[in-house]
Design a binder for these strands. Structure first.
Lengths: 173, 173, 173, 173
DNA sequence: TTTT
DNA sequence: TTTT
């Protein structure tokens, strides 16, 4: 208890399909790899520069995890809100490693799909899902919309093949 | 100076095309009407409820204003960040009125277009713009991407006719 | 239309003690008046300018409302997070009025007291609270994290001597 | 891929005095170590639990860096806003390491001191600063708002006696 | 009505 | 390493 705030807000694209694991309790845990990028014009050279940042996101929350599992795909654009958490672990050589993640927990996190509306005509990421109910806005709240929103938007969207391919190559973890 | 923070973050859709005015200085001022909505299942009735909130957004910033003017259209989905400000004014009867707006100012605000990517094939809001460079991410910063980002995304998107029509009907200001 | 976000983040001071009302259900509703201010040096005149903004905050949430009622006083500095909501109402002359408020609801809002540390020695804002327990951080969640916070990730968030030592040794700046 | 947002908001305490370095350009770079903590009551055991998270913050910005250097001390409570960035580096054994930091850059970040009010009487964190001027709110903007803040909107932000009176009279709750 |  |  210390009057503190630990909040991360991201709008970015998934570099891969959600990675779903089960905890010993059976609860799902979903890992996402989310890219944000910024571009600017270099003052000196006048060149256009771009920098992509990759974020590890972990969803510890039945409800959000299920939605992520069902509705998110590689390339999807999401809004998400969580907290920073750094874990220490040892690699195979016993070396200490630290990994910083954005953690979404029950009542402490939010996840919103930001695309989907315009894909009615087909589309999809890779091999195309059927669409329908793809846009899904999920408040991390069981009584306020949680998991029940959306459904009225239709399709969903992709980053296009190039984007996805590039992502595979570049993800640093 | 008081260690204070006044920040609004919205992800929503434009209910109308941007409204551009000129100040006496010639600088553009852009007003946006942005809808956010949430839906939830009513516990008692089991019905699905939805509530839309309309936000008045004012952009006092050459750069952002220009981008808004050029790239935003009715139905566009945006991420924006600004500050709350309440103005007092008198109506024609001399009655005091208060209007609360989200103000984006130079170095104090951000605006990002969140759709557009998947519209390469045409689409558009109403009468269709040509697309190209429609997705535009704008940092409110002249040296970090400001106004120069994007361009690589292609089309842009709409909320579809229904959405737009409904909006016209419902905007309460 | 989903995939929307409506979020306000304020750090400011209470202009008055919390105003507590009861709903017909008996649940408390707390209204706060929160000031944020910003100051800057006017480029033309060189003068120091200041502008204060007043925000109406409404807490619809038993837990948060109780904490606000108990721990917040005029002058208190708070961090709070809620959603914008505009209500229409009629004044005594039947004139339409709109009031925009920052609403904190269950699972949708946060409230943190940011002072208190230095009140131990007595003090307090007005007529002095007893001290002790002044700083109060309140997540809008009745049991957030619970047993799931750390343990289920098999890691730890740094801290501890090792971490510091390692960092000193290894981080190259 | 544009239309992205990468934002971190922290309210926490400095675990040490700011660490100031100079870049080859002579510009200061300030590193902060910021703690956030959360506490909750464990449902099973009923015990009070606490978890502290440490954040590495890097300030690349003359103005903010100077303020941090001058006004921040171990123990200080701050509000800060920046972007996540993960750097890869090699330790002395040639092992790859990743460090995630919250980066504050020009026009992209904010820093606010949240204590100070109660330091007038001396005190201070460690060995006492002179007091006065302790609270310092710093927008990451060399002249933000400037003459454009309020005046150009022809309004005012409420405040003032009228506002309060009107409200008392008219607001129906 | 706060705070600096 | 902070804070409560």
């Amino acid at each position: 208890m210390a009057g503190s705030v630990n909040k991360v807000i991201l709008v970015g694209n998934l570099g891969a399909d959600p990675d779903v694991k089960r905890m010993s309790s059976g609860d799902p845990v979903v890992n996402l790899s989310v890219a944000t990028s910024e571009s600017w014009r270099d003052k000196a050279s006048g060149e256009r520069k771009e920098r992509t940042e990759w974020h590890r996101v972990v969803i510890f929350n039945d409800q959000l995890a299920k939605v992520a599992e069902q509705y998110l795909k590689k390339g999807a654009k999401v809004y998400l809100e969580g907290a920073l958490q750094t874990r220490k672990w040892q690699d195979q050589n016993g070396q200490d490693k630290y990994t910083t993640e954005i953690v979404l927990q029950r009542y402490r996190g939010e996840l919103q799909m930001l695309d989907g509306r315009n894909e009615r005509d087909g589309g999809g990421y890779q091999g195309g899902q059927s669409g329908g109910g793809q846009q899904r806005s999920v408040s991390n709240d069981s009584g306020y919309g949680g998991g029940n929103q959306g459904g009225n938007q239709g399709g969903q969207s992709s980053g296009g093949g190039d984007f996805s391919r590039d992502m595979d190559d570049e993800i640093p973890f």
